[in-house]
């Protein structure tokens, strides 16, 4: 090695180390600043009460409406996406296993849909709402978020389902099972941990997204009561509180951001934990 080569080697290695620790440092800074600001202003009152009159000028109350609203919206959307998404993922891997071209076209379409920004779903959901004469409501929000998380759900289930060995399928066929039994009884059990991970991942995406619900779910200071009523969501509540000029309201935005971040961290921890736990029921080859 010449001297110049040695210097080049060292230089780029240094750059790489800087880049890697830059990413880790940014993550640490984000987590630190959210916790530091949020913990200062979070209180029991905030978590257990709905906004009182004058809340957005600094009077009392909390964000229970947004917490419950977000949870019910994300829950509804996840259930709906699961009902539509799981059969698609199973169909791709059981029924279409001999039609590689069809499968790859569908996977390609799903990847395209995954890449579409959530604001486009929001706009589309809004135009559908107008078309059907609906008001902003929990239902419209759930439908929009469902469309948005559907490709995420299907593709992450698909990743797991396509690792199920062909031998397992052949064994089931030889015992006389039909295709739908193989799909719903064998594949779902073999990839149970992956399916849970996919569901929780979609839930996390659904609860954190603001652009898709901005048009469709509306906003309200009341607790969610009924599918056809508007509903508050955490991301929007953070956004609205932050745009207030009153410092106390801004502080509540930091606390709300902490709540949202915690929900998402807990969901992702759960998905790791559950994934490990149900790994044991899997048949290993």
């Amino acid at each position: 090695m010449t001297r110049a080569q040695k210097i080049e080697e060292k230089f780029f290695k240094l750059l790489m180390i800087i880049a890697t620790y830059f990413i880790l440092a940014i993550l640490a800074i984000i987590i630190y600043s959210i916790f530091e600001k949020g913990l200062k202003s979070i209180s029991w009152e905030m978590l257990t009460q709905v906004p009182h009159g004058g809340y957005y000028y600094g009077k009392g109350g909390g964000i229970l409406n947004a917490i419950l609203g977000s949870l019910s919206l994300a829950f509804g959307a996840t259930v709906l996406a699961f009902i539509i998404g799981m059969p698609v993922a199973l169909y791709l891997n059981v029924f279409l296993i001999r039609h590689k071209r069809v499968v790859s076209v569908i996977r390609f379409l799903l990847d395209l849909v995954w890449g579409i920004p959530s604001i486009v779903y929001g706009a589309f959901g809004f135009s559908l709402m107008i078309f059907f004469g609906l008001q902003t409501s929990l239902l419209a929000g759930i439908l929009t978020v469902t469309l948005f998380i559907l490709p995420i759900m299907i593709r992450s289930m698909d990743e797991i389902l396509c690792t199920v060995p062909i031998g397992l399928q052949e064994a089931a066929y030889s015992l006389g099972s039909n295709k739908s039994e193989i799909a719903f009884k064998i594949f779902t059990r073999q990839s149970f941990s992956g399916i849970i991970t996919a569901v929780l991942l979609s839930f996390g995406r659904g609860i954190g997204d603001a652009a898709a619900v901005l048009f469709t779910a509306g906003y309200t200071d009341h607790l969610p009561n009924g599918l056809l009523e508007p509903v508050a969501t955490l991301p929007l509540s953070i956004f609205f509180q932050l745009s207030s000029p009153v410092p106390e309201v801004q502080n509540r935005a930091y606390a709300s951001a902490l709540v949202l971040t915690l929900i998402i961290l807990i969901v992702s921890l759960f998905s790791r934990g559950l994934g490990k736990r149900y790994h044991k029921t899997k048949i290993n080859f």
């Binding site: 800074i29 984000i30 959210i34 996390g204 603001a210 953070i238 956004f239 971040t261 961290l265």
Partner: peptide
């Protein structure tokens, strides 16, 4: 994974703060 999971509103808030 954590970076990918943080919602965009929280990123925006962090942008305003820092």
């Amino acid at each position: 994974d954590i970076l990918a999971g943080i919602p965009s509103v929280v990123y925006g808030l962090w942008g305003i703060l820092v």
